[in-house]
Amino acid sequence: MTTASREYLTCKELVELVTDYLEDQLSAEERLKFEQHLNWCPPCGHYLEQMQVTIRAAGSLTEHNVPEAAQKVLLEAFRHFKTAQR
């Protein structure tokens, strides 16, 4: 096994692969190299965590309530349609 085949990812390359990694779209070899980079590079570990936090934050955006006015309009439309059907 030559040194060349063990070439490592740079941090700059890794940040472009983060989404592919999280989506499980890297090949087995790429994935292994990605994880190996994290083994020796704490800053990239922080970067990955930041991405994961960002995604969790997006998923936490709270529901807003349905404005009363909108509810009324929709209910009217629903009634009207049902009546018209009969």
């Binding site: 740079t10 941090c11 390359e13 590079c41 990239c44 922080h46 970067y47 965590e49």
Partner: peptide
């Protein structure tokens, strides 16, 4: 080359 110049921090 290609390594962090200004590394990301822990949040």
């Amino acid at each position: 080359a290609g390594g962090w110049a200004a590394p990301p921090q822990v949040w």
